[in-house]
Each structure stands twice: as structure tokens, then as C-alpha cells.
Design a protein around this nucleic acid. Structure first.
Lengths: 243, 243
DNA sequence: CGGGGCGTTGAAGGAACTCAACTCTTGTGG
DNA sequence: CCACAAGAGTTGAGTTCCTTCAACGCCCCG
């Protein structure tokens, strides 16, 4: 088997063993590719036209804006992740999506997905599995923001991104590329940017983690894990239960 | 049409117009009923045996426990809500579920749901719609915990529960039954119980909202809405987009 | 070379927490 | 029927974590 370059296939392949036909279906599904520039919102809260995508390259953030202008980032998406699926069945879109980098995404049509459920139930189940895993990430973020201290929150987040990226073959054991700013961290973790900065410094001093120049490096993974006070179990779902 | 008493049918009926046959299917799905006592966990984190339910009577909480013993409640479920669906496709269950009151629930088997997708695609879509709406609630809670002050958070939460209960025909314009304690509020909203108590007092003085004796009463809904700084749009999904 | 985005640091203030004591209610068993 | 315990709610005092405000440095790009 050649090394898989389609990140969706790579990701779903982690949950079930995909047949040749199933790979073809997924390849077809991600055929209509489109580029979007960083910083230009592709989905807006309140839209009635629903758009869903599979992200193939780059990073995006999904977020909500409050009346007072503050922002809560719900999650970041990386290659292989779905975008906008959560509200695709609802009347109006309930969040915004903005590329953090320039991205390549494949647009998904609701009809295609519905069709998939009857023609390719295994693939559909694998999609549901991936969406469940995405939801688990949001839930874990809620736990972080609700009950963890800033230091734990940041350490936990960086380890989470490391694990997610490795799942789609990006990043290494001790580091990963990361286009986020400290403002992104702040808005994702319910902190102020100033405090994120201070916490990053402490994290650097304590565990050798650096967040600079678009790269996150871990000096000592174990110490970072300890600081995060977490085992990342919710990310390693170990394949779809159907298999 | 007689007044619907099955809360699942009532809820899904809000998203699509259900045919007689579809109602029958849903009635069958919720036929195997079981009682559980309050306080006795019915789903545990780490379980490999997966159980999903539809809640028919009572309230439950879904939560995670951290190493230090603190608890983050992810969401409460009320009549008509699904329980445990999020991790039903994952290898291990990633959260705990505990009845807050004595409950009646119908257990759902994965096979039945899979079957539903091929035999009753409209019903399946309605189920997905409901699960999307549930996820929207979790996302909105993340926004609350991340970016709203305690007073807004509590006001917002009480208004949210009011809206959810009305959707399944429980509670009134100005009040609803609520078996939660201040500790539940605290753990759901990322606050301490002591602070919840103070905030409830302020809310009572400001807007006439009372939280006592198992009942929440709103003195002045509009002022409460103002305090919550929110429009509840994410709850009113106005039916499935397919229709 | 000037501006803007991002990062860094200090100082001061505030929102929420912890600790601790006390009250109120409820249920239960003597 | 009362005593008592356990759970829930209330309040005060002191503390901590995090925020806000403000200033400044860096670096890249137009």
C-alpha cells in the first residue's frame, strides 16, 4: 500500500480498515477542492446557507463572538478534520469559521453524505466516529476551561494538539508546526492573552516547552504531561467499535 | 391527533412531521423501559460496554471527574434527551452519567440505530438533528464558561433550561421544576458552590429570579434575558433543514 | 522607515476561590 | 414524636488567580 496522502482517508483509516472501493468513495468526496485565504471567514453565524468541508491543508478556527466583542474559540481544525458539520442539519449556522493559515478544503454536500449512509454504511460509521471524536475534544476543552488552572490548561492544550497532529502524520515526537498566536490560545482557553504569555513563560521554565516562530517544542514530554495532569485517553479512541 | 406523551416523539416531532409509521418505530425504540435510582451512576468513564438511552422521565447529569476530585458537568439531560450517544462509537466511554432524580429510561442498542439509518432515514435524520442540537448546548456552555461572568453564566443557564423544558412541554412561562442543587450549578458552570450562592442572591435582588425548593421562578424574564446577555438562538433550531 | 501585528513585562485591581462557621431543612431511627 | 445526622444553603474574611491597563520591544512587510 502506498503511503496515504489524503488526510481524510488517513484519519478514517485509523478507525476502520478501508477497502479500495471505500477509498475511492472518499477520494471522490474530496475531489472538489478550493483554496481560502487566511483571515477571511468562510462560515458565518446566522447563515442559512449551510456549508460543510473537509480540511485538507492548513488550520482553521471555529468560534463564537459575544455581544461585547469577546471571542470564544470552540476548536481548531487541522488536515482531515470536518468543518461545519455540527450545524449542517440546523436551520441557521451557530458559529463562525475562519482560516488561520491559507487552506485547501473540499466542500461536502449534504446530499452526498445522506447518500453515503445508504450506499456506504461503513464509511458513514467511520465519519460518525470521527465526529464523535471531535465532540470529545470540545467536551474536554469545557472540562479544561471549567476546572483546570491556566498552567494545566495550556500544557494540556499543547499536548492535545501534538497528539491530534501525529494522528494525521504531522509533527514529530518532540515538536510540531503551529501557526497559532498567543491570542488564539487565549480565546480557546478562556484566558487573556497577557496571562497566556506569562503562563507560556512559566511552562518554558518548568518543562522546557517553547511556543515560538510557528513551532512548538517539548523539552521534556513527561514533565509536560505531569503539568497537564492528564492522560489524553479521550483522543486515542482506538478504532471504531464496529470492527 | 392525541396529545403526545412520549417525550422522544414530542421532541423529534418538533424537527420533522412524523408519520404514523414513524411514530410506531419510535414507540418501539423506547419500549424497553427501565428505572434507575437517583445518585447511582449508570455509565462510567472507561467502560467498554457501551450503553445508550433515551431519557423518558427525570433528570440526569453527564460529567467528568478530574484527578484532584473536582467535577465538570458537561450537560444535564431531561425527558426526550439521548444519553451516552456521543461515545457509543468509541472504544471506551469518556464520561460518567448519574441520575439526579429517580429516572425512567429506554435503552437503545447500536444495532437498532444502525438499522434505523437504512429503514427510516427521516427518523435517523431527526435523531441526528437532536444530537446536533445537544452538541450546540455543550458548545454554548463552553462559551459561557470561557467568556461570561458568573452572573451572566447563571442567568443564561437558567434561561436555557427554561427553554429546553418548554420544548418538551414542561414548565411554564414564569417557572419550571428543577431538582438541581447549587452544587450542580457550580460544577456545570465552572464556579464554586459558594460563589453560585452569592450570584443567585444577586440575581434574585436584580431580576427577581428565585432558585429554591426545587422550583425556579422568574420575576422578570426580560430583565433576566438582559442579564444573561443572550438571545437563546442556538436552542431554537426551527426544525430539521431537510423539511 | 514607519506602521501594524505579535510578544513581553510591570503594576494595580477585581472576580472568584478557599476556609470556616453557622442555619435550615429533611429524613430516619430510637 | 423527638433527637439527631446529613445534606443543602448562607454568610463573612482573607487570599489567589487572572484581568486590565499601559508601556515598550521585536520583526516583518509595504
Amino acid at each position: 500500500m502506498t503511503k496515504e496522502t489524503n488526510p481524510l482517508i488517513r484519519k478514517l483509516g485509523a478507525s476502520i480498515r478501508l477497502s479500495g472501493e471505500e477509498r475511492t468513495v472518499l477520494t471522490d468526496l474530496t475531489r472538489t477542492r478550493r483554496r481560502f485565504a487566511s483571515g477571511k471567514e468562510i462560515i458565518h453565524e446566522g447563515d442559512t446557507e449551510h456549508r460543510a468541508f473537509v480540511l485538507l491543508e492548513g488550520w482553521v478556527s471555529s468560534f463564537k463572538i459575544l455581544r461585547d466583542g469577546s471571542r470564544q474559540i470552540v476548536d481548531f481544525q487541522i488536515a482531515g478534520d470536518f468543518i461545519g458539520m455540527r450545524s449542517v442539519l440546523l436551520r441557521t449556522v451557530d458559529h463562525n469559521v475562519e482560516p488561520i493559515t491559507d487552506i485547501v478544503a473540499a466542500s461536502i454536500h449534504l446530499d452526498e453524505v445522506m447518500e453515503l449512509f445508504s450506499s456506504q454504511p461503513r464509511v458513514a460509521a467511520a465519519m460518525m466516529w470521527a465526529l464523535s471524536a471531535d465532540e470529545a475534544i470540545v467536551v474536554e476543552r469545557l472540562v479544561s476551561v471549567g476546572r483546570r488552572h491556566a498552567l494545566e490548561r495550556v500544557a494540556h492544550f499543547l499536548l492535545e494538539m501534538r497528539a491530534r497532529l501525529r494522528l494525521v502524520g504531522m509533527g514529530r515526537q518532540q515538536s510540531f508546526p503551529c501557526p497559532l498566536t498567543q491570542y488564539h490560545l487565549a480565546d480557546a482557553l478562556g484566558l487573556s492573552a497577557v496571562h497566556v504569555n506569562r503562563v507560556l513563560r512559566q511552562l518554558r521554565e518548568d518543562t522546557g516547552v517553547t511556543f515560538r516562530g510557528g513551532v512548538v517544542k517539548f523539552g521534556n514530554i513527561d514533565r509536560a504531561m505531569e503539568t497537564a495532569n492528564c492522560d489524553m485517553g479521550y483522543l486515542d479512541h482506538g478504532g471504531l467499535i464496529l470492527e
